[in-house]
Amino acid sequence: MTEGPLAEPLSLTPEQVTALRGRLPRVGEKVVAAVIAEVPSYSVPFQGRMGRTIEGAVTLALSGFLDMAVNSAASGTSGTRERPQQVFDAAYALGRGEARSGRTMDALTAAYRIGTATAWREMSRTAVSHGLPAEGLVRFAELVFDYLDQISAVSVAGHADELARTGRLRERHLSELAVALLAGREKERLEQLAEQAEWNAPASLTAVLLPQSAARATRPLLDPRTLELAGDVEALDGWPDHAVLLVPGRSRAAVLRSLGEVPGVVGPTVPWTAASRSFHRALRALELGLAAESQALVDTETRLAELVVRADPSAHEDLRAQVLAPLADARPAAAEKLTETLRAWLLHQGRRDDIAEALFVHPQTVRYRMGQLREIFGDRLEDPSFVRDATIALS
């Protein structure tokens, strides 16, 4: 970092400069004491050895000011460029350190404000007591406050830069954790990534797949620990307009309430290290078009049978053909009606009136068709294995 330019040099006598330099250590003590008293965030950190270190830094900063404010011939000093640069570098590092410590820019700027006022009060008294005239005092004040404003601005910049850097770094770590969770990495690796990302792992996670626009609107309503992946993500290959959210929640019901009516697919709630299982089930439901069919939130826990039946479409088709093979010789229209009747008979467990109501036909019609089916299928209608296969095939 480099310092901003000061205006015209301040004319101080060698005696005044000597008096000001001799006063600087005491000014540093008073600045630290004032900050401790008035800025709660620093009441503990500035005690003891840390306080003495800060006193030295204040003294260095004010000495740098004198180097910059007084021409080297009048002040009798050397290294006028190196010391101010050292001061500004230290101020920048201070801002970064404060960000890493978790303290805000408000605390830092308050400390500078109080420190500047204290330093000016002490230095102006010394300067006046050694003959600095009124017009010189005004110029002195301008230079002091301008210089310390510059130092404050450099520290604030360091603070902001560190927050941005650590924020980007943490976002990258969180993204790496989310990718590893979807990939089903081993528990030890997931715990390592969670610690690296400073992510407080919940007991469980629920995978939610939804359009990116819906994800942006929904994210603020969810647990702050929610992990998100969107865009060009290998796990979402084929769904570039979708995002995956890994949502913590004590209960599945709470997660569903938070999501509301957003269009998307919700996987099962699983232990957080098993999040890939929730993701892959939700992805399968998305691939099967369950979300497109409903245009609303799809809870896979209520659609398990469909997911099982549709898991292998070709196998399902083969099973259906195998179960209905005895109807191959029937006329298409007759085969269709008998298939509908067989399906209703399986679902309603042979209750004739319920079957008739489901098919919108008379119970006698049901009796007639079931007679036909018994002639065609014979004892197979009493075989539990066939009943199982037929129920799945006609689902």
Rank of each mutant, 00 (worst) to 15 (best):
E3N: 11
A7Q: 13
A7G: 15
A7D: 14
T13G: 02
E15T: 05
V27Y: 05
G28E: 07
K30E: 14
V32K: 11
I36T: 10
I36R: 15
A37G: 11
F46D: 07
M50W: 12
R52Y: 06
T53G: 13
V58Y: 13
T59C: 10
G64T: 09
F65L: 15
L66A: 02
N71I: 13
N71K: 12
S75P: 00
S75L: 02
G79I: 01
R83Y: 08
Y92W: 15
Y92Q: 14
L94P: 12
R96A: 13
E98A: 02
A99Y: 03
R100E: 11
G102D: 04
R103G: 01
A107P: 02
L108N: 07
L108R: 08
T116M: 14
A117V: 13
T118R: 12
R121G: 03
E122K: 03
H130K: 02
E142K: 11
V144H: 07
V144G: 06
F145C: 05
H159E: 07
D161C: 00
D161K: 06
E162H: 03
T166A: 01
E171P: 01
H173L: 12
L181S: 04
K187E: 15
E191I: 04
Q196N: 00
N200L: 13
P202N: 01
A217W: 01
A217G: 11
R219A: 07
L221F: 04
L222K: 05
D223W: 04
G231E: 10
E234L: 13
E234A: 15
D237A: 15
G238P: 05
P240K: 09
H242R: 10
A243V: 06
V244M: 09
L246Y: 06
V247I: 08
G249N: 08
E261Y: 00
E261Q: 08
G264S: 11
V270M: 10
W272F: 03
S276I: 01
R284I: 00
E301R: 06
E301V: 00
E301P: 01
L304W: 09
A305M: 12
V308R: 09
P313A: 06
V323W: 07
A325R: 14
P326E: 13
T339D: 07
E340I: 03
E340Y: 07
W345Y: 10
L347Q: 12
L347E: 14
R351D: 11
D353K: 10
A356E: 02
A358N: 03
F360Q: 09
V361F: 07
T365W: 06
G378T: 08
D383V: 00
P384I: 04
D389N: 13
T391D: 08
A393G: 07
